[in-house]
Amino acid sequence: MAVRKNQANLTATEKRDFVDAILELKRTGRYDEFISTHNAFIMSDTDNGERTGHRSPSFLPWHRKFLLQFEEALQSVTPSVTLPYWDWTVDRSPRSSLWAEDFLGGDGRSGDGRVTSGQFAFGSGKWPMNIRVDGRTFLRRALGAGVRDLPTRAEVDRVLAMTTYDAAPWNSSSDSFRNNVEGWRGPNLHNRVHVWVGGQMTTGASPNDPVFWLHHCFIDKLWADWQRLHPRSGYLPTTGTTNVVALNDTMKPWNDVTPADMLDHTRFYTYA
């Protein structure tokens, strides 16, 4: 059984294997396919139209499947690799080991925001932005510039206490656990972290920054934590609802996986 660990607890070897597997996916073009798939949903998920990946109930199961697929791709390179998660309620500083030279590399430099350290720095030649929203071909970050602080544990706990998974109108205005985790309402959890990292992470092409996976892995863990806290609250909606994915509807782009299939993460991995 694969165990997903807190990134702060990875050994030097585990960090290196994870980074190297990502670089190998980048080299073969598979990494960029994940970005363009994500783009398709970022562009088409709307509050009043069809919505699958974002601003809708299936935000959590869709990203769970998306991360599983990415993790499987990493494991096709190095079988022992699993996705680590970034608990940004604890590791909340640009000086965190997450941003060290031996892992994801550091903050962007002043002026153009270019990341200059680590394997994902443009200068390494291994991390070009091929799928992008603007002409810049280098990874950028601006840690803590777009918003000063990452969400706190108290804010996370406030959201985890919510009892209803999701609610009409099933979009960015819903008063629900899902929408508060996603961040369109309440203390702003998921969205705020994208903005805190800055650079590509604030854009629709956010998977260009490998921290995307560690961030979403923690969001995925929060869903599992919420399930444990509320054993009698399930995924909603359970019956067909216009424009959104109900419990037993299949999700694009896979068309063979439903939110129900994704509810129990322990079928695939556990969290340490």
């Binding site: 970022i42 562009m43 509050d47 009043n48 601003r55 929203v133 603007d134 777009g146 918003v147 109108p169 979009n171 960015s172 205005s173 961040g183 369109w184 998921h190 969205n191 705020r192 994208h194 903005v195 992470m201 604030t202 854009t203 629709g204 092409a205 956010s206």
Partner: peptide, 14 residues
């Protein structure tokens, strides 16, 4: 967005 606010592909999470 449903509440009348706006996002773009460049600033997608605020």
């Amino acid at each position: 967005n449903a509440n009348g606010s706006w996002v773009s592909v460049v600033n997608h999470y605020e």
